[in-house]
Design a protein around this nucleic acid. Structure first.
Lengths: 177, 177
DNA sequence: CATATCTCAGATATACTGATATTT
DNA sequence: CAAATATCAGTATATCTGAGATAT
């Protein structure tokens, strides 16, 4: 494991940035914090993913399918929701299919499209990986439940502000498609 | 740009996760939030990085050097601080050096080691990219200053808890080495 | 006919493993 | 001699661009 930095890099960056009067310090601090936190958590959880033979992109695809009703999603939704290029989805799904964790099935109404769905073994794998990561609390330590709730709420605002998702239409209850 | 997801994926995941009673819901929600926020912000800021001919790893290396006293860091510190493999640092620095943004100089006391330092053109580039990103507030929207401060503080706890950094020794004031 | 969906071929970037030369 | 530092060769993965086949 990498040696820790002997000071908080984000704090240090932002002090310097603010001294130069370049503006948007808080946005800069928030972005840097998110980027660094992602990197560290990925690093700390990488060994667990490896034990299951998964890279992070493959893990993300599996998890998205795992939590989807019917464990199935059209290819183009995978691309939109994972924010990766369509050819990357083709590649990722190819490899997951080679390992027997997903399969492509025809789209019920659009003959151009394909739906990716988890196989039994893919569902099992996703569950195992998630349990293993949860057992280590995803390498999150030192925050109270209340702090975690606040963190999740604020990151929700960041994600919504950046256009990751839009609220569900309030009318159609239960329709998530 | 990708079509937005019609619901909040993190909220949806966590509800499902909690129903199954698998534990560590809040850690799972926080981790998923961080991962997704990183992905979206990267996506939203990618066009700006591209305008300057930078990929994200190269941008990260430049920014680290930009905010470092003397704009110089030993190779092995770059590896530790960016959480990437030493051979990846060699590769990244090779390319930045090809473009004239950094140069390798001998370490003053350790003849095995090399120090990477920004060139004038590298310092200029880093400043321009940061100003451009700041002009768009790094794609962060919809949070008050107070919320941003809270977010930064909580992500600082996450990063510290995951071992990204350790506090500066309280004795040696001003010594950041 | 314009658009959407998916795939392929080819190119580039990233990052790992394992090995090596040099220095501490 | 053991450990640290940086690099190289080779490989795997991921991602993009541009083109093309099929369907809407």
């Amino acid at each position: 494991m990498a040696r820790p930095i002997p000071f908080d890099p984000v704090e240090s960056f932002v002090e310097d940035w603010a001294e130069r009067g370049l503006g948007a310090e808080l946005s800069m601090a928030a972005t840097a914090s998110i980027m660094r936190a992602q990197r560290v958590l990925l690093d700390r959880n990488a060994a667990t993913l490896r034990r299951f033979g998964l890279t992070f992109p493959r893990y993300e695809a599996l998890v998205l399918l795992f939590f989807q009703p019917g464990n199935a999603v059209p290819m183009n939704r995978l691309s939109d929701w994972l924010l990766v290029h369509p050819t990357s989805v083709t590649n990722t799904v190819d490899r997951l299919e080679d390992d027997g964790f997903v399969r492509r099935v025809p789209h019920p109404t659009d003959r151009r499209a394909l739906v990716v769905e988890l196989t039994d073994s893919g569902r099992e794998l996703a569950g195992e990986v998630l349990r293993a990561l949860a057992g280590e609390r995803f390498a999150i330590e030192g925050l109270s439940d209340s702090e975690l709730r606040t963190l999740v709420r604020l990151l929700g605002k960041v994600r919504r502000g950046a256009g990751e998702f839009v609220e569900e239409a309030p009318a159609a209850v239960g329709s998530r498609r």
